[in-house]
Simulated scan of single mutants.
Amino acid sequence: METAIANPSAELISTGRPQLDRNLRLKDVLKTLPKDVFIKSRFKAWFGFLSNVVLVSLGWWGIAIAPWTLLPLLWLFTGTGFFGLFVIAHDCGHRSFANKKWVNNLVGHIALTPCIYPFHPWRIQHNIHHKNTNHIDRDNTWNPFYVEQYEALNKFEKTVYRSLHGKFWWLGSIVHWFQLHFQWWTIKPGKEREQFKFSALFVMAEMAIGFPLLIATTGWWGWFSLWCMPWLVFHFWLSTVTLLHHTLPDLRFEPDGKWHEVTAQLVGSTDCKYPWWFEWICHDINVHVPHHLTTAIPWYNLRKAHASIEENWGEYITRNRFSFRLLWQITDVCHLYDEEKGYRTFSES
């Protein structure tokens, strides 16, 4: 793990970085970014989307004709293509793919079709994460439980929690998908509920029609090989990338009264280096700090924005490099949360 500490003698917070002025506002940080990072490129946006469509199509073609010895590699390739489509839908959800809202909605639904992920429910829930990043009580993405919360769970709930915050972290996004993205009746009546319901029913219809057709034409093995295994690879990446964006032993979650927006977005988000092929297929989603400062930056401008942040705010940034060793360390330690001590392991509860 690489952590930037420009001035070791400065007043330090628990993360080992200089203390941010709590009077600092998000717009003060955004003023330091080049204005052209907010400019959308129709060509780059559509090229990114269509390139993933081509990659997934090539992956499916390869799975259909390749010998079984090549299937694991093709599952990895195709599932990573799924995740690339998810990243395009991610820009659509933040309205940074196109200027017209209906284009964002249409492309978002199409891009998430192989992932069977409801677009509007994801968009609505994901915006909660951005508004409350690393808020211990309000964030909805990998926020840990207090010890007291964990102890109040029943045996089954404890087993699920221990698994998802341990070595089965890669199933976390599947549980999140199932728990939060189909229950439209939990949303306050109005436009958002109708959008939520439409997307949820769209995905249900997709599964009800698409799965039987796939099984009828390719058999159960075709369903498993062409869709299920790539889908599991997609969720491995979704769980892993999301986990590494905001989870390290020294990154803080804070409650009301202590939570500070700029600290949460600038210090509480991390950038992580992945293999070049992953970063290319998945459109630099790992360049995460600029995205958390403002969701208005399209994926193809993230690196330029990041260079500016490095220049002006580099002492506050956390940088990692993807590895299974890092994942093992996180899932060995980042289990429960204590407001004063930070993360605690299950054995310390």
Rank of each mutant, 00 (worst) to 15 (best):
Pro255Tyr: 13
Asp256His: 15
Gly257Leu: 14
Gly257Thr: 12
Gly257Gln: 14
Gly257Pro: 01
Gly257Asp: 08
Lys258Thr: 11
Lys258Pro: 01
Trp259Asn: 09
Trp259Ala: 09
Trp259Cys: 06
Trp259Ser: 08
Trp259Glu: 02
His260Cys: 10
His260Ala: 11
Glu261Val: 15
Val262Asp: 01
Thr263His: 13
Ala264Tyr: 04
Ala264Asn: 06
Ala264His: 06
Ala264Cys: 11
Ala264Ser: 15
Gln265Tyr: 11
Gln265Ala: 13
Leu266Ala: 08
Leu266Pro: 00
Val267Pro: 00
Gly268Gln: 09
Gly268Tyr: 09
Gly268His: 05
Gly268Thr: 05
Thr270His: 13
Thr270Met: 15
Cys272Gly: 02
Lys273Phe: 11
Tyr274Gly: 00
Tyr274Ala: 01
Tyr274Ser: 00
Pro275Cys: 04
Trp276Val: 09
Trp277Ser: 04
Trp277Gln: 09
Trp277Thr: 07
Phe278Val: 11
Phe278Tyr: 13
Glu279Phe: 01
Trp280Glu: 03
Trp280Arg: 12
Trp280Leu: 09
Ile281Ser: 04
Ile281Trp: 02
Cys282Asn: 06
His283Gln: 14
His283Pro: 00
Asp284His: 11
Ile285Asn: 02
Asn286Trp: 04
Asn286Phe: 04
Val287Ala: 06
His288Gly: 01
Pro290Ser: 08
His291Cys: 04
His292Ala: 06
His292Val: 09
Leu293Thr: 05
Thr295Val: 13
Trp299Met: 07
Asn301Phe: 03
Leu302Gln: 02
Leu302Cys: 01
Arg303Ala: 07
